[in-house]
Every structure is written in structure tokens, then in C-alpha cells.
């Protein structure tokens, strides 16, 4: 938490990074979001810098999950939604009508609150994204599976039972499998929606270690209800309340010297 940039970044980096992939710099511009007539997000503007962990915190129903699910347009599944403003990834809008939403989602991995492995083998779970994309050889798939499981810290436990059903894994292992599945498609951004809320403390700490590892390669956006977790894993923290972005700064600042009274009340547990 010592590498935090103190002032918010307002524009995308001029140069693409050297990894051959896009950097995964998310910027949200004056974003309003509606379920039918009900507005749930109010004029959100924020930047999530690449290769950092951004935590979204706030009481239930404050819109943080909705915002997260809009970054990969998961909310498109719901009838009657609409939005104003824009979300840009590396300077390009995600609402480009000429680009398939599936190609957007291939760049953005997502891990859900409840682990949701498919009723298939561990191997098939990990390579699912590559299978639906098509065009991979068996050896490429094998390699991708191994890499993904290694980066999700599951390789040692799963390497001898790749053909077993994924549903035989423990809760924590299943969640790490979902992380492996998300990173197997080599995304730029990893969205995590309360990934530890259904896990015991030991499994939680393993996932947290993993997040710290993953941020070397990915832009991570994590929604969490656990204040300590936000403080432990994130570089930047955004506090939401009733659909509005109240404060967004480096995690250190948010947790030590918040500028807003509401933020301070929330993180000290006086309300929420």
C-alpha cells in the first residue's frame, strides 16, 4: 500500500504497455444507470488504473455491484435497463454498437459472489472460455489450463484430478477454480463481486493473497463488504452511498484521513 498515487488519474495512458496486451485502464464518465424508471447510479466519474486493485465499498444497495456488473455489461441481461454517460476501457467505449458484447467479455474476467463452477470436469471448467472462443489446439488448451490453475494457486491441489467433477472441490477451491476460469481467457481486467463472502477465514486469506499476486497482471476491481479486506488488498478505494460516489482516493487516505464525514462514519462502523 505504499505505491499509491495520491492524485486521481484523469486520462488514459498515452502508451500501450509492453506486454502485448491492452493495459485495461477503466474510466467511467458521468455515468447514470436506471432499472426501468428507478435511477440507481448518479453521475459516477472515476478511473481505475491498470495493474492496481480498486475496491468498491458501501452499504448494501448503494450501487457498487451494479457498477461492477456494468463494466462487462452483465446487466444487459435484465429487461428495462438504460444508462447515460459512458464507460471507457483503454479509451474506447464499451457501448460500441459494432463490437459484439462477447468480445468485450472476453477481455474482462468476472468472479461472482457465489462460486459457480459448471457441472463439468475441472479441466473443462478452466478451458471453457477458450472452448467457446474456439480455434485452440489440445496442447494450447492444456497449457492454458495449467497456467490458469497456477495463477489461481490451485494447480498443486487439482493437477492429479483434472478430469474429476469440479463440484467435488471444497468451497474455497471452487472459488479459486472460478478465478482460474476467469483468468484462462487472458483478460485485461478482473471483476470480483464479493468473492469471499461465502468462504471461511482461511480460504478468504488465500484468495486475498491471490488477489495481490494477480494485480501484477490484471486490473482488479473488487466489491467487498469487508472493510479490513478492502484495506488489506486494495490500492484505491471508492465509497458509494445511495448510488452516488462519495469519495474515491488511495486506500491509505480513505482509511486514515477521509475527507467526507459519511466515509469516516462508514469505515468506523458508526452507520451502515
Amino acid at each position: 500500500m505504499d505505491q499509491i498515487t495520491s492524485k486521481p488519474i484523469v486520462s488514459a495512458p498515452a502508451e500501450a504497455p509492453q506486454t502485448g496486451r491492452d493495459s485495461g485502464y477503466v474510466s467511467i464518465r458521468d455515468y447514470d444507470f436506471f432499472y426501468g424508471k428507478q435511477q440507481v447510479l448518479f453521475s459516477i466519474s472515476m478511473d481505475m488504473p491498470e495493474r492496481q486493485v480498486t475496491a468498491l465499498i458501501g452499504p448494501s444497495g448503494c450501487g457498487k455491484s451494479t457498477l461492477l456488473r456494468n463494466i462487462n455489461r452483465m446487466n444487459d441481461l435484465i429487461d428495462g435497463i438504460s444508462h447515460r454517460g459512458d464507460i471507457l476501457i483503454d479509451g474506447k467505449t464499451i457501448y460500441n454498437p459494432h463490437i459484439e458484447v462477447t468480445s468485450l467479455r472476453k477481455r474482462i474476467g468476472m468472479v461472482f459472489q457465489k462460486s459457480n463452477p459448471f457441472p463439468k470436469s475441472i479441466y473443462e471448467n478452466v478451458v471453457y472460455g477458450l472452448r467457446v472462443a474456439g480455434g485452440y489446439t489440445k496442447s494450447q488448451l492444456d497449457q492454458a489450463c495449467e497456467e490458469a490453475l497456477k495463477s489461481a494457486a490451485l494447480w498443486d491441489e487439482a493437477k492429479d484430478r483434472l478430469t474429476d467433477s469440479a463440484l467435488g472441490l471444497s468451497g474455497g477451491q471452487q472459488q479459486r477454480l472460478c478465478i482460474a476460469r476467469a483468468v484462462a481467457i487472458r483478460p485485461d481486467i478482473l471483476l470480483m463481486d464479493e468473492p469471499c463472502s461465502a468462504l471461511d477465514p482461511l480460504a478468504t486469506s488465500r484468495i486475498e493473497e491471490l488477489i495481490t499476486e494477480l494485480k501484477k497482471d490484471y486490473t482488479v476491481v473488487i466489491v467487498t463488504h469487508n472493510m479490513q479486506q478492502a484495506a488489506r488488498v486494495s490500492d484505491r478505494t471508492a465509497f458509494f452511498y445511495l448510488g452516488k460516489l462519495i469519495e474515491y482516493d488511495s486506500t491509505l487516505t480513505i482509511f486514515t484521513t477521509p475527507k467526507q464525514k459519511q466515509t469516516e462514519d462508514y469505515i468506523t462502523g458508526r452507520f451502515g
Binding site: 474476467g109 459457480n116 467457446v132 476467469a182 481467457i185
Partner: peptide, 15 residues
């Protein structure tokens, strides 16, 4: 079929 399964699949870039 649980929503989690569909969302997991869509999030992997499946149509």
C-alpha cells in the same frame, strides 16, 4: 437452471 451458471458462462465470453 441457476442464474449463476448462465452468468458464469456469459462472463467467459460465451454467446
Amino acid at each position: 437452471v441457476p442464474r449463476g451458471a448462465r452468468e458464469g458462462s456469459l462472463a467467459c465470453g460465451a454467446s
